[in-house]
Design a protein around this nucleic acid. Sequence first.
RNA 1: GGAGCGUUGGUCAAGGGGUUAAGACAUCUCCCUUUCACGGAGGAAUCACGGGUUCGAUUCCCGUACGCUCUACCA
Length: 506
Amino acid sequence: MTEGTINKKVRVRFAPSPTGGLHLGGVRTVLFNYLFAKQQGGDFIVRIEDTDQTRFVEGAEDYIFDTLKWCGLTPDESPLHGGPFAPYRQSERKPMYKEFADKLVSEGKAYYAFDTAEELDAKRKEINNFQYSHATRGLMKNSLTLSEAEVAELLANNTPYVIRILLPDEEEVKFTDLIRGEVTFNTKEVDDKVLLKADGMPTYHLAVVVDDYKMQITHAFRGEEWLPSAPVHILLWKYLFGLENMPQWAHLPLILKPDGNGKLSKRDGDRLGFPTFSLDWIDPKTKEVTIGFRERGFLPEAFVNMLAALGWNDGSGQELFSLEELIAKFSIDRVHKGGAKFDYEKAKWYNQEWIKKLPVASYKEQVAGLLAKKGIVANDNLEQVLELVRERCVLLNDFVEQAGFFFKPSATPDIAAIQPKWDEKKNMFFIELIRAYELSTLWEASDLEIEFKELVAAHQLKPGELMLPFRIMLVGGKFGPGVFEIAAILGKEETLSRIKHVLSLF
RNA sequence: GGAGCGUUGGUCAAGGGGUUAAGACAUCUCCCUUUCACGGAGGAAUCACGGGUUCGAUUCCCGUACGCUCUACCA
């Protein structure tokens, strides 16, 4: 912690653009924001950055809040939750930004530019690696090259214009990044970014700075892709509000695609068959559905845990963390500098661990819902069943196969697995077994096993030959917990009925 | 092209002048289990390269290579 933030309450913000589903990297950015804020006893603010009206997507904002809710990351202030710094949507704050852009112009820190898109394009073609900067701004149509009278006239005629920041020709801009340490840029390498667009909306550059100031943000986390534009934001802070009030920056490493190189994208998930979005996202225009981690069968605990581990660890070797533990143990110092390739296998492992770790009651309802979708109605045995099969489920959806047969016999028992070795002796055995079980008064797994094995011995058969057929009869396939435990839960009536049914198939 | 940032097994990574260079996922072998898992034991596999500094560099410094990000009136 450095001067300026010592006595301030920690306030962080997550500032997404509502342009579509929330990507893994986005959720991780929220997470780190949240963890840091809560650990410091601070506030977590969500601000919607919807300054680009052309990219607005219906439903995207709701999606962001649905994701936060699912993950258990509750904002202290947001357009939804309200707060003392409302409004929290940049589109609703439009007049605020112009005031500061104008102030910069009047102080000579920014200028009007009247270049049309076509003129800009032409210049880019004409000059290699064109940048609107100290080297080229003299060639363009702006209030630096035009006379005062010309500018006044253009303005009077409502000629469209943008306001660009006037960067120093050559100046070192240094700042300390919480993750990377000291970072230096020279202004000669960066261009005069647009601050206010022709439609009167601010660009991200102006909006973040103004809003972070107005909302008293103390720490700003964002993806590493923002690093190159950091000098613009720092200069803006210096010109507008003073460096001493600037939040501390932390540029998070990127999440990379599992194969090859580069940022993980939605397309990589589609291509490789795993989700990259938190929840299902349906594009309102194309109706295209992108699967989310939730719908794939991930528990929010696992999703959050997996995300936190992508770029951070506590150094102890511990891998499983609840949200509460993450809040307690998170530290920026231990965030990695380098990007991490996303590994879906590891992500699934986290989920499997959380399925084993959490009380089954916490996901019982969801599993019941999943079963219902397949036309399976669970009964009172559900919790007991989940307890029994949980360790063989990686995703919640796996419960459909692993637990479903307890409530609905398999429509297609895998007879092929036992038919080749089926004979009259085995048939006789099961007929005897039905009789024996019908008479038994005890229905515990251990009793059933003893009876079964005694009968096997009496028939001079080997248990190994009969166990698989028995399993196929009860389960329908070669999987699941111990057969006698299954029979115990199924109960006498259902067990016998399943044996009889499969017997009738031969 | 330029700038910035990064680089420990296949992947996530611990470590940070002297270590047999943790652990996890994945993979392989074995044990347990008359199914499938879980669990247990073990194996294979790593400090990008080149120079320094040093008695000693994976660790510090400088280069190089490679990768990524940015280079929009998008965020």
